[in-house]
């Protein structure tokens, strides 16, 4: 099982799409590792730098509604994975992106807007980090000397995929 948690990258906008996460011109790469330099290359947000320290150090992304909309490209979760990001927290996800995350043994966690507002209040904290317990369904937000705990739900199937490390081994064993 992968580990979840660490420094947080805040992306404060809804509808962040897969073309922004990894532009189509890089879909000609055959290995996941080759995608690494192109993470979030086409995302334009005030204060956001795809090559910045915050992006490089991030282990968790926090965003808003409909994260990962657009293309079915699993290159989007992969570019996160090879950059050490194994969890995305958002108000909601596009279906294909969410399933791709769990199929890779990673976590796409939905929280209500009010919880996200509290988490986003740490966006200015240089030490903002999160610890995530998938089995317990809890996450703890740390930053600016404060700590707050949130609970979340993921479906039993998605939890099984995270624990199994992904869908291929699970399916080959069960079907």
């Amino acid at each position: 099982m992968k580990t979840f948690g660490g420094p947080v990258l805040f992306l404060d906008r809804g509808d962040i799409n897969t073309d922004e996460i990894i532009p189509a011109k890089y879909l000609t790469e055959i290995t996941k590792e080759d995608l690494k330099p192109y993470i979030l290359e086409d995302l334009k947000l005030p204060g956001f730098d795809p090559k910045g320290e915050r992006t490089i150090n991030a282990r968790v992304i926090v965003s808003r509604a409909n994260f990962g909309c657009g293309s079915s490209r699993e290159h989007a979760p992969w570019v996160f994975e090879v950059n050490g990001i194994t969890a995305v927290i958002a108000e909601s996800f596009a279906r294909i992106f969410r399933q791709n995350m769990f199929n890779c043994g990673m976590a796409a966690i939905e929280l209500p807007k009010a919880d996200l507002d509290l988490i986003f209040s740490h966006a200015g904290d240089s030490d903002a980090s999160m610890s995530i317990d998938i089995e317990a369904g809890t996450l703890i937000m740390n930053g600016g000397g404060k700590q707050k705990s949130f609970s979340f739900e993921i479906s039993p199937f998605d939890k099984a995929l995270v624990l199994a490390g992904g869908w291929v081994d699970y399916a080959d064993k069960n079907y």
Binding site: E74, Q99, N100, N103, W167, A171
Partner: peptide
């Protein structure tokens, strides 16, 4: 339905796919 590469891989191998 559109799906990602992992679902495709299982589809190719086993002829099944999981959906909500």
């Amino acid at each position: 339905a559109g799906i990602g590469t992992t679902d495709l891989e299982v589809g190719i191998l086993k002829g099944v796919c999981a959906f909500r």
